[in-house]
Design a protein around this nucleic acid. Structure first.
Lengths: 232, 232
DNA sequence: ACCCTGCTGACAAAAACTGACAGCAGACCA
DNA sequence: TGGTCTGCTGTCAGTTTTTGTCAGCAGGGT
């Protein structure tokens, strides 16, 4: 048995007992002397294990697990970061707190170039309405960025085709469906367009008469008010 | 410098170079002999580091990071699990794949009692429209489960109060706002209600005249069609 | 063939770990 | 107060592991 295995054994023994365990019992179960056991405890504590021990009482391990060394690819680290960011933004306070703690622990051991990647805002959990991915999306994104109108060729559920001049607000997801939320000049109201039903898209030279940020705010408000509103 | 630190150093040196690095350079930079360097490489490889080395060429590290031992609480592990599950269900295939790989790696090193917790289905990522958390949500959930109508006391954005009899469809999130999507008898249409503006909620004995699943499908369709529709 | 490099085994020297022993200290109880 | 149970630390000889030196094999490129 290597020392590393023995350290993990000690943690497992502590985890198994609900009451304090004396050093003597731990030493006997791991087959080492008491002096070595004390050294092992000190090593585990220096590795971050929260083990409490007081004279006449024995050792108690705060619940936890020592995750051994793992080799992770950059993308796996990004997935970890993204997932933890998502979890930390839940309104479920204990879980969110735990996610933030886990993020801090992982972040503390990363080298600078990976830590930068870990904390990169571009990795922030995108709001519910997330970036879609489609071939003409560069054009849509350009319009979003430059706050210019778009001419859409659109086919609705029944195959009815129409042309719309719209002011794009955001592109995102609902479930697995990608949609464009926009102000539609034809309808004089906010509308959602499934990206996969957009047949073609043309960037128009005309700029949107209102800031996209303001439109987005109003759009969100109207969604939450259950009723579309005309732009003021 | 402990051996563990030296192993991590080697990885960082390899990560810093874009071309192969010879064993001699690594040995010199870490201050050990070439023979020891070879042993260290063998150790890192046995720990999962993907280091390629060929005669006359030098060593190349495939991108990755050796996450050193971390002490995580059970809740932190759950947060990790939840976040990775969320990431693995994204439609972004490379990220999802990475999340699944990371999950497999973490799961492989967990002891049985924690692995069970890690893989617990109750930790499954709830779909986009997730369970909200509010005191009267048990009543709302009961109505959802039993497909019964709800009487809502609601205050809108301007503080205007109203009473609505609704057929609840789902409860979930948009951004950080929790909303109830429902068919509203008062308006004869689908409506969204911010949960935090619901002043009170009463479970009615009457059952919804249509299945919630059908309503949900139609509600989604109307959202994506950009136009509310009356129930048929 | 020569050069550069990775790789492995053997073995003595160096370093780290272990157990036995001694002594200090805290908590609890009679 | 004394006794018991327990955690803690230092010292040192014995044990184990790691390291460096040396030798030799092998692959790739010129």
């Amino acid at each position: 048995m290597s020392r590393t295995e023995r350290l993990l054994d000690i943690l497992q023994i502590l985890r198994r007992h609900r009451r304090p365990v004396s050093g003597a019992v731990l030493a006997q179960e791991t087959g080492v002397s008491l002096r070595t056991l004390y050294r092992d405890i000190a090593t585990l504590q220096s590795m971050g294990a929260e083990i409490d021990g007081e004279p006449g009482m024995g050792y108690v391990l705060k619940p936890g697990f020592l995750l051994p060394p793992l080799m992770l690819s950059p993308t796996e680290i990004e997935a970890l970061a993204l997932g933890l960011k998502w979890a930390s933004q839940r309104t479920d306070a204990p879980m969110g707190e735990a996610a933030r703690n886990a993020m801090a622990k992982v972040g503390a051991v990363l080298p600078p170039e990976l830590r930068h990647r870990f904390e990169d805002d571009a990795l922030a959990v995108i709001p519910r309405w997330e970036a879609a991915e489609r071939e003409d999306l560069p054009v849509i994104r350009q319009a979003l960025g430059e706050e210019r109108k778009l001419l859409l060729g659109y086919a609705d559920q029944h195959g009815a085709r129409s042309e719309r001049v719209v002011w794009p607000i955001t592109v995102g997801y609902m479930d697995a469906t990608q949609i464009l939320a926009a102000w539609c000049e034809l309808r004089g109201d906010y509308r959602h367009f499934r990206v996969d039903r957009i047949e073609h898209v043309t960037l128009l030279p005309a700029r949107m008469p209102r800031r996209r940020r303001d439109l987005q705010k109003e759009w969100r408000d109207t969604i939450l008010q259950n009723r579309p509103a005309a732009p003021s």
